[in-house]
């Protein structure tokens, strides 16, 4: 066994490669899934989910507590059904309000939960009844235009 220097270099190479992988895993990326412990699922129905996608964050007071697992269309209620998993450490009252919000002007859309004041807590698989749809820019603008037009009609009469 006279190849000790070569063995050393191979060892250095493999160690450097694994260190690079660790760097990519810990410093560059974040190991998701591990930060959500013993998850349970909740369901919310929205009239319009806008651009919400699976794996989008679920936040309460800005803190990440879960992720959207699945989005499907409920053909009986004509609504979008959003299934999301929430960290088991967090419980929410039954009158929790679910909104679809946007982070920043062009940011991704996420589900924001606003806990209410009820004493009873949501059990796994429960449906959140109070929801607010995503804001669709076209609707907002048309509403604004309509209001402006209505103001324009009434203004001369005054």
């Amino acid at each position: 066994m006279s190849r000790t220097t070569m063995d050393l270099w191979v060892g250095v190479f493999v160690a450097a490669g694994i260190a690079a992988l660790l760097f990519l895993a810990l410093k560059v990326g974040s190991i998701s899934g591990s930060d959500i412990q013993s998850p349970y699922t909740l369901i919310a129905r929205f009239d319009n989910i806008g651009g919400l996608k699976a794996r989008a964050p679920v936040k309460v007071a800005g803190v990440l507590v879960g992720r959207v697992a699945e989005i499907r269309y409920d053909n009986e209620r004509f609504q979008a059904e959003v299934v999301f998993t929430v960290d088991g450490r967090y419980k929410f009252p039954t009158d929790t309000f679910a909104n679809i919000l946007t982070s920043g002007l062009l940011g991704e859309q996420y589900v924001g939960l606003d806990p209410g004041g009820e004493d009873k807590l949501l059990a796994p698989g429960d449906v959140i009844k109070k929801t607010q749809s995503a804001v669709v820019l076209e609707k907002l603008i048309s509403q604004f235009m309509f209001n402006k037009a209505a103001e324009g009609d009434t203004a001369p009469a005054k």
Partner: peptide, 15 residues
């Protein structure tokens, strides 16, 4: 064996 290690080193170096 060397290819994934080299690719990881490449990415880390690039970052």
């Amino acid at each position: 064996i060397s290819m994934p290690l080299l690719a990881a080193l490449f990415s880390a170096m690039g970052v």
